[in-house]
Structures are given as structure tokens and as C-alpha cells.
Design a protein around this nucleic acid. Structure first.
Length: 228
DNA sequence: TAGGCCATCTGGTCCT
DNA sequence: AGGACCAGATGGCCTA
């Protein structure tokens, strides 16, 4: 991945954070409105434990979700519905010339693989559910690769936010007081503005970001219906 | 219509 | 031996 793509993901994740903040409020991120009156929504802290527990719950769900679809009936049905590229249940298919035992084994392996991929997709859906991005019907579902890249960026940003908070706590523990509102030049929050490279209006449109990173040949903008 | 994304099948490899 | 994992191939669907 090149540098511009990383910048792009940074912009997407920050936009997504703002989107969630606006729709669900700061309480959705695990801290109250009293923190940082001068920068509302700038530091959406999600406790790592919550994030992890949410994933675990989803993982358990998906684990027991597909325990009954490993029969051949499901196999054929799904193959037809999705459009099996090999048509293995047709008379002229590749499995037709194999013995009944081999065919049965192959169908069993196919069903297992299908179930495995479904579990993987369930896990990806769980990841999409906890990643802050626009979940509205007008926005296309994140692709698999975009989901993974965005999740990575989100984790990095959360780690950075946590580090900033630690620094702020350490700063406060030194016995110094901070007047309200917190000046943007204050060290712990100074980097927040650097992370979010767009206007101070706190609502950066997709169009704004697309124009900012217009030189980036990336398919990740496909979810954006607001291109300039 | 081309390209992106996806689901599925398949054979190979590794692990238990 | 059986299951998990992986990558390649293939075809369907959707969008620009």
C-alpha cells in the first residue's frame, strides 16, 4: 500500500467516527460530554474491552449459525442460487464421472468449505458492525478489503487516542489545571487536529475528502455517493 | 460493456 | 484419515 492510500483510509475512518458521533452521540463511544468541551467528538474513545467483547459475541453467534446446512440439499440449492461455476450436480459436471463415493466426499468437502466461508463473512459483518462508517442504506456496504483496511486504521487511531488520553492524564496528575475551553495548542489534543486534516466544521463531506485525495487511484471511494 | 466484487468449486498442503 | 486452510478458476451480479 502506498502513502496516499493510507491517507485515504485515515480520512475515511475519521469521517466515519464523526458520522457515528453525530448519529449516536458521544455516549456511544464510552465517554461523557464533560470531556473536552472544546473538541466535541474529536476523541471518540471506545474501551478496548467493549470492542473485543462485541467481536467475541458475534463470533460465537456465527459459530453456531451454520451447523445444520452441511447437507447436500443446501449444497445444490445454494449452487444454483449463486450460480455454481462448475455445475457439479449436473449430469455432465466434473463429478459425474467420479464414483458415487468420491462424489459424496467432494460434496461434503464443498459444504464444509462453504460453511467456512460463511463463518468468515459473518465475522466480516461483525467487523463492519463495530467499525464506524456510514451504515445508511444510501451507502454501499464496505467491501472485504475496505473493511479490513478500515479496521486496521481504526485500531491504530484508537491506540493513538488512548495514548493521547494517557498523556493528558499524566499531565493533569502533575498538578496543573487546564482552563476551559481546552486550547487547541495544548499538547495532548494538538495531534487530533493533525489526524483529521479537514475543515474545523467537524462535518467533512465525502466530496471534500474525494477532492483532497483526488489523485489516489483507489476503489475505496466506491462507497461514496457524494463525489465532486 | 468493462471492471469490481462476490460466492462457489476444486485440488493441494498442512495439521491433528 | 479427516478437517482446516489456501489460492486459483469460474461465472453471476451490479455499477459507471
Amino acid at each position: 500500500m502506498n502513502v496516499s492510500e493510507e491517507n485515504l483510509l485515515k480520512s475515511i475512518s475519521n469521517d466515519a467516527l464523526l458520522d457515528l458521533t453525530q448519529r449516536y452521540g458521544q455516549s456511544a463511544f464510552g465517554f461523557g460530554p464533560s470531556l473536552g468541551a472544546g473538541s466535541p467528538g474529536r476523541f471518540p474513545l471506545t474501551p478496548a474491552t467493549d470492542f473485543l467483547s462485541g467481536q467475541t459475541a458475534k463470533s460465537n453467534e456465527s459459530g453456531g449459525e451454520h451447523t445444520s446446512d452441511d447437507d447436500d440439499g443446501f449444497d445444490s440449492l445454494e449452487s444454483r442460487k449463486r450460480g455454481s461455476p462448475f455445475g457439479d450436480d449436473k449430469p455432465g459436471g466434473p463429478l459425474a464421472k467420479k464414483s458415487k463415493e468420491q462424489r459424496s466426499l467432494r460434496l461434503s468437502i464443498n459444504a464444509r468449505e462453504r460453511r467456512r466461508m460463511h463463518d468468515l463473512n459473518d465475522a466480516l459483518d461483525g467487523l463492519r458492525a463495530v467499525i464506524p462508517y456510514a451504515h445508511s442504506p444510501s451507502v454501499r456496504k464496505l467491501s472485504k478489503i475496505a473493511t479490513l483496511l478500515l479496521a486496521k486504521n481504526y485500531i491504530l487511531m484508537q491506540a493513538q487516542a488512548l495514548e493521547e488520553m494517557r498523556r493528558l492524564v499524566a499531565y493533569l496528575n502533575q498538578g496543573q489545571t487546564i482552563t476551559s475551553p481546552i486550547p487547541t495548542s495544548l499538547a495532548p489534543f494538538g495531534q487530533a487536529a493533525a489526524v483529521y486534516p479537514f475543515s474545523g466544521s467537524a462535518i467533512a463531506t465525502c466530496a471534500e475528502k474525494c477532492s483532497t485525495y483526488s489523485g489516489t487511484p483507489s476503489s475505496l471511494f466506491k462507497h461514496c455517493n457524494d463525489k465532486p
